[in-house]
Write a protein that binds this DNA or RNA. Structure first.
Lengths: 338, 338
DNA sequence: TCCCGGACTGGGACCGGTCACAGCCTCCGG
DNA sequence: CCGGAGGCTGTGACCGGTCCCAGTCCGGGA
């Protein structure tokens, strides 16, 4: 008789039970906290787990408990932003770490194309994930709407515009942050302050502009506002338009560090020195702000907190605990550019 | 009698079967390709799926088939690289898209701390994923070793150093690329060419230097080599050391765009103009190369192909098809800096 | 007319866990 | 000596699919 090669199967909970001389139930109890288990049994099971090299089967557990043990990190921005904008990476990393602490995992979903967007809700319902971390939604995003209709626990990054108010979100105080930065610029004697705002259909685009306008008060001049899409190129282009229209501006507040970098690029080409001739301020305190030439004065978003709070909020919502949107403060970081 | 709120359960395959008037087996067959199913039955099932809003339960399928339907994107670099280096984002996005085409998902794993690294192999065995895309391994990485020991299909990005040769990988022709760039610099009349190499325990660090040295031939001067860790700061620091040691260099070849950017920063501070006084070349053609001031001459890595090939290679390995490591070509992108 | 094979279908067993319940033992109070 | 309460344990049912085998139906060749 020939010896079968014995393709050693992965040990299951039954193997562990047999090895420990107890039942499946007891093993399960030990694995999940271990209440109502005698010290002897617990020791035997732990020993058996060690000996057999047992690892719980995730799919089986998922099936039995009805929970996936993972969350989706859903990005809906057009592609170029993902690999240009360092803030996404910050959020992603933070979320992954927050989850790994909890023995859960992050599933990355990119819904850039309309086709991809269309089946995200469907896909998410398939039980892949317990909830969704929605990154950067534009106004009245149908995707968010369909997630909510499907009853999928969702937490947005930034207050989603144009939705029923119950949408959960973690955001920063956009308007207040913009007021702080504007006040900083005014305190340094700048009067002709321009703003390169973000898209009006994003919270950062809309409310940072609101804060800027409020703080400027009577000095606010709509001529000095241009809009970009947060990218460096759009900042450079906006700066060109501003310079053409109002060559006398003495400060620029951009709604993202990338746009600020673009503005500096344009200004340099135009022969203006930063900050001597014109001050430039950004927003985000993304990685590039500190290494930029000159280093950017900016509003620091609390990235670690943002992702951590998004995760806790979402998990609370999933577990049915009482939850409400979170607003975090930002801090002014003064560097050389303004 | 009170009306129970009817918490409508998600429809299962049995509900569909009942609605279509067929058996579970037939429904399952329709879902999976639909061979050996009569046109009538197929139509009835498809209609029933539509009506009931059925979505396959991923965990159940996973349990029955023994496949997770997802791959891990495992990053082992120290944290700061993730959010500084845009190349990671490129790979990540490419991999996510390649998988979404195949109805699979990407699970993001970050094993930065030793503790995290320690249980990755254990974790991966839990059945979360079918295989691992390993990003950026340093020499003789014990993590890779334990993944291989555990029999987990793994594909590395870049040829892992210090391992048995059977490790699957997708990489670019590092040495050849470096020769191409070096030849380009020499063709433009540069003779005192310095190199800012990557860490010697990474393939990009080691083999790009090899290519540089080979191409330089007798003109190679070990004095003109400095090592960075691919980050912008390290490039700036390396450039400082080079300038101090050999003020007469007329070109610098950095093993990453970020380090090239750092070098330009240092050169600018030192009052040297790029490219007039000194040429600077990078590597990667990451997003920043084109928008950099001046735009960077660099070697373009075929990012989309890299991630796509990593995924196909890994899936082939998982399915037990014959596979071997892949090496892709790079292309020289000439911009203003060199 | 019978038999056979191919197309199609139904249903039991199974994947590896969790959960709820029943049962056991032991100890204590009445 | 009995009843009962706790602490602990074992077991059957179940989660929602897939797989595979047995069976039905039907048409065509002998």
């Amino acid at each position: 008789m020939e010896q079968t090669p014995t393709v050693r199967r992965k040990p299951t909970i039954r193997d562990v039970a047999a090895a420990a001389g107890v039942s499946r139930g007891t093993v399960s109890r030990v694995i999940n906290g271990g209440h109502w288990v005698s010290p002897d049994a617990r020791a035997a099971v732990e020993d058996a787990i060690e000996r057999t090299g047992y690892t719980a089967n995730h799919a089986a557990r998922s099936l039995a408990t009805g929970r996936a043990g993972s969350l989706a990190f859903l990005m809906t921005e057009p592609q170029h932003l993902l690999f240009d904008d360092p803030t996404f990476a910050l959020l992603l990393r933070g979320a992954a770490e927050a989850l790994s602490k909890r023995q859960m995992t992050l599933v990355l979903l990119i819904a850039g194309t309309p086709a991809e967007r269309a089946n995200v809700a469907h896909y998410v319902s398939a039980g892949h994930v317990d909830g969704v971390l929605l990154i950067s939604s534009h106004e009245a995003d149908p995707l968010l709407e369909s997630l909510m209709d499907a009853g999928i626990p969702t937490v947005a990054c930034g207050v989603p515009l144009g939705h029923r108010s119950e949408v959960l979100s973690v955001s920063v105080d956009e308007a207040g942050s913009a007021r702080t930065m504007t006040a900083h610029l005014r305190a340094h004697g700048h009067r002709r302050i321009a703003m390169i705002a973000g898209p009006d259909d994003t919270p950062g685009g809309r409310f940072r502009l609101v804060g800027f306008r409020d703080e400027m008060g009577d000095d606010f001049d709509p001529e000095l506002v241009e809009v970009g899409d947060y990218s460096q190129d759009s900042g450079a282009a906006a700066m060109e338009r501003l310079l053409e229209r109002a060559p006398d501006i003495d400060a620029v507040f951009a709604a993202s560090d990338l746009m600020a970098a673009g503005a500096v690029q344009t200004l340099r080409r135009a022969g203006r020195r930063v900050p001597d001739d014109i001050a430039v301020a950004g927003f985000d305190d993304s990685g590039l702000a500190a290494t930029h030439e000159p280093p950017l004065t900016t509003m620091r978003q609390p990235w670690e907190q943002l992702s951590e709070r998004m995760v806790t909020l979402l998990l609370d919502a999933i577990d049915g605990r009482a939850v409400e949107p979170v607003v975090l403060p930002t801090t002014l970081v003064v560097r050389a550019s303004a």
